[in-house]
Design a protein around this nucleic acid. Structure first.
Lengths: 231, 231
DNA sequence: CGGCAGATTGATTGGGGTCAAGGGCTGTGG
DNA sequence: CCACAGCCCTTGACCCCAATCAATCTGCCG
């Protein structure tokens, strides 16, 4: 999210020595931020996928969003203590940027607040769509919808080309993102394969007919609030 | 949400003739905003409950959040075209405030952006908790959790006192908010009654032991990011 | 006294969960 | 270059929570 508002910033990160100091890298499955911490920073994902998730006392995990390359994530910058964790799906390279640097990047405090306001609204819009997805759609639609969202966002970031993209998440990840079990995700993916809607193997996803997948998942991209509709 | 940042604003609304012009009132079940519109305003709920919801082509409705008296809601102010509707649960009195007036209320554009940034982050945090609620909890826990959230927010607004509050939503509303059917909501509420956790009748909710209900719903208030924990 | 929205109940069904046992890559170390 | 380990995917059998369908009941209002 915020790929567009922050696009110029992302370019800057690489060229700014002050920021380069805060670039980190984590192994797959490691946490970037843990619930209850207060990093007072924002994270910018440079490479790899991460997920925002909550884990309950009973162990059940729910992913609330995925972070893709180019995405920003608020790690308690304004609210302090985070109410969720951020975990690496695969190997992740990211920048940890404090408010001062964000202001410098955005131009001034007002521009930062303004961009961050917009960013937070888009994140909330995506959350809303997930609530609908989990609350009111069948497993088949749910997974199709999730794939559509991720593919659409990847494409906007230039990471889905020629109908295919890297696909780091495991079936367990997809289960935790859709409120299903991994067993059922497995069966549902097979169904999507059988219907010719996806080809998914070896951490690589191919979508021969995205429009068809969108129809199945009742997907429309309006809630992503992309500047230019990538269609 | 944002009851606290905007608390001084709310006071002002009543005393400001410029804003008083934009105070509206709707019948129960009527929409304040419909998906696809772009009101370029924020709504401040003064009386009654509203709900943000999405309706799919197949008719299935999902509520993504409730708006209680004192709550602000963004109606496309920044993002333009809204991706959801806002409907009145019961009779609602609200103010429709444009950006200029918001800036005047907040002090200046920077303060507004800053407050709105925080507001949007809290709204997103609540959405995340709903994703967990719907995705990973049983009907019994789910409804208990929803009741806890609403009671906690009502209490923060001074609308839950002596262990009880007005309760406008129907069982259909609760079903659409929890991803269940109204039949199952009905049965689950009866179970909660039988366990002595709630007393709910005639649009009035009594919670004899909120701590117990919170335990059942795996509820913690951290995600609401209330300034002072109302406990 | 209707009429209607919302709540309640019962009977039945089904989508997805649970449990448990394999199967297949892939990286690693001998 | 093979063997093993670990992670992930796959499959089968069975179960159960919640959906569905269909009345019926209740309170409220004109």
């Amino acid at each position: 999210m915020l790929q567009f508002d922050f696009e110029p910033l992302r370019q800057l990160v690489h060229g700014m020595p002050a920021l380069a100091r805060h670039i980190r890298e984590t192994e797959p499955r490691r946490d970037l931020v843990r619930e209850g911490e207060s990093p007072r920073t924002m994270l910018l994902i440079l490479e790899g996928w991460a997920s925002c998730y909550k884990q309950q006392r009973d162990g059940r995990r729910q992913i609330t969003s995925f972070l893709l390359p180019g995405d920003f994530a608020d790690a308690g910058l304004i609210l302090g203590e985070t109410d969720h964790s951020i975990g690496a799906v695969n190997r992740v390279r990211y920048a940890e940027i404090d408010e001062e640097d964000l202001e410098a990047l955005a131009g001034d405090p007002y521009e930062l607040a303004r961009a961050a306001w917009r960013h937070a609204l888009v994140a909330a819009a995506i959350n809303r769509e997930w609530i609908v997805n989990i609350g009111r759609r069948t497993a088949y639609q749910r997974i199709a919808h999730l794939l559509c969202e991720l593919v659409t966002r990847l494409r906007a970031a230039g990471l889905f080309e020629g109908g295919s993209c890297d696909w780091p998440p495991t079936q367990d990840d997809l289960a935790d993102a859709t409120g299903l079990t991994s067993v059922h995700v497995n069966r549902t993916l097979q169904l999507l394969r059988r219907e010719g809607l996806i080809d998914l193997q070896r951490r690589r996803l191919i979508v021969p007919d995205l429009a068809a997948l969108m129809r199945v998942g009742l997907f429309t991209s309006n809630y992503l609030h992309l500047e230019r509709d990538p269609l």
